[in-house]
């Protein structure tokens, strides 16, 4: 990371001292660079700076899970993570899920079980569910429900989401990797 101190930015009004931050991170296996106001979140960096709009903004307050991505293999909320904090980190988003052109088994299971309706929470649900499999929290439906409760779905697809995860888990899906 390099700081670019004291850049004079001239807007319509008075000049302002801004220290933009340049952040280099890996997104879906590719090295990417973001130069932005350090208050820019990972979510806004992905969507607005890197053109990866698969990750959704549902509340921007850490309360809905729509922006769930993986940072260094753990599921986190991109709306409460600053992009600058991700220097050198590995970020995985729905846009890069699947391998060799094949969808991840969960993506297929979500389609088969109709685990979504409007589809807006779906990227976050799936990224959360991929992590859930790796966490091994799929032993019972109660466990799946509890550990998927950080992802709101207003269309109410929860039972179908559980069915999709249950199926992939029962087929050894915890070995399914990104």
């Amino acid at each position: 990371m390099t700081h670019v101190p004291d850049v004079q930015t001239t807007g319509a009004g008075a000049p302002r001292t801004v220290s933009e931050v340049t952040t280099t991170l890996t997104v879906n296996g590719e090295q990417r660079t973001v130069s932005a106001d350090p208050r820019v979140t990972l979510l806004d960096a992905l969507r607005d700076r890197l053109g990866l709009t698969g990750t959704k903004k549902g509340c921007d307050q850490g309360a809905c899970g729509a922006c769930t991505v993986h940072v260094d293999g753990k599921r986190v909320l991109a709306c409460l993570t600053l992009a600058a904090q991700c220097e050198g980190r590995e970020v995985a988003t729905i846009d890069g899920l699947g391998r060799d052109g094949e969808p991840h088994p969960l993506q297929k299971a979500f389609v088969d079980h109709d685990g979504f309706q409007c589809g807006y929470c779906t990227p976050g649900q799936i990224m959360s569910a991929v992590a859930l499999l790796e966490e091994g929290r799929t032993r019972t439906d109660v466990e799946i429900r509890e550990f998927m409760s950080g992802n709101l779905c207003r269309c109410g697809a929860y039972p179908n989401i559980v069915a999709a995860i249950r199926q992939v888990a029962s087929e050894g899906g915890s070995d399914a990797r990104l």
Partner: peptide, 21 residues
């Protein structure tokens, strides 16, 4: 039948109004 738009929705490729620039 499965949704015809399902593959787009599970891959982040369904474009909602805020996804356009």
């Amino acid at each position: 039948l499965n949704r015809v738009d399902g593959p787009l929705k599970v891959s982040g490729q369904a474009h909602y109004p805020s996804d356009f620039d």
